[in-house]
């Protein structure tokens, strides 16, 4: 029998807890925009610097809106009947997400890679949920590892592989420290009650991970700690559709 904190977010109280974590984390992009506007207010900026600040604010805005959209999708995903399933090529989704994440990653000194191992046949999934889960998990890990290290160069990997027992696991991996099944379980129980549900992860990172957890839990399995090509992160597993193997 699984503990509540192993089952991901299924009930209203935990949805409310994630909403509370989300409201904490949305302060980050808003503060980024606020301080940028205060900095440029009254100052004479060159066209180049004006453009740089405008791009930074655009990235902050997109990051905040994507988090909100992912949360809304996660709420809809709790109702299985509302989510249409379709054949999804996991590799293609990861490539799209990598492309979307790249400008944001660059602002945090991070290069994004996609690494696919084994024959990844299509799976039955909700493409929008999978993309949103990988996107908000990726954005969180980008911020987390940038905050944990004084290094100016980081890597983020979107990975997928097929295991011997015909399960495709897919997730996001980085050099962020402190991710384990235990810390994730603790985060699920602390969401909404602690400012830092994920110990060692800075403000602005936890809700993206928890929302991705909700999305994956609604589709297949909640996130689990995993490794991929010597990097650590979180992944979910999806069974291969026997029918789709022949498509």
């Amino acid at each position: 029998m699984k503990r509540q904190s192993d089952r991901g977010f299924a009930d209203t109280e935990q949805q409310r807890a994630v909403l509370s974590a989300l409201s904490d984390d949305l302060a980050l992009p808003l503060l980024q925009i606020k301080t940028t506007l205060e900095l440029i207010d009254g100052s004479k900026l060159s066209a180049k610097n004006s453009l740089r600040h405008a791009k930074a604010m655009a990235l902050s805005t997109e990051a905040g809106l994507q988090l909100i959209e992912a949360y809304r999708l996660a709420l809809r995903a709790q109702d299985e009947a509302a989510l249409p399933l379709e054949p999804v090529a996991v590799g293609a989704v990861l490539q799209e997400v990598a492309q979307q994440l790249t400008p944001y990653a660059k602002s945090y000194g991070t290069t994004v890679e996609v690494n696919l191992q084994g024959r990844l046949t299509p799976v039955l999934a909700n493409k929008q949920s999978l993309a949103a889960a990988m996107q908000c998990l990726g954005a969180s890990l980008i911020r987390a590892q940038a905050a944990q290290s004084e290094s100016k160069n980081h890597r983020l990997m979107l990975g997928a592989r097929r295991s011997a027992d015909n399960v495709i696991s897919t997730g996001v991996f980085s050099n962020a420290q402190g991710l384990s099944d235990r810390t994730l379980r603790t985060a699920r129980s602390l969401a909404g009650r602690a400012r830092q549900p994920l110990n060692g992860f800075p403000a602005g990172t936890a809700s993206g991970i928890l929302i991705a957890d909700m999305l994956c839990g609604a589709m297949w399995q909640p996130l689990r700690a995993a490794a991929h090509r010597n990097m650590h992160g979180l992944a979910t597993a999806v069974p291969i559709s026997k029918q789709l193997q022949f498509v």
Partner: peptide, 12 residues
Amino acid sequence: TDYDLASNIGDY
């Protein structure tokens, strides 16, 4: 911890 915030605070 955040680069953008630190950059803005530092510049100011």
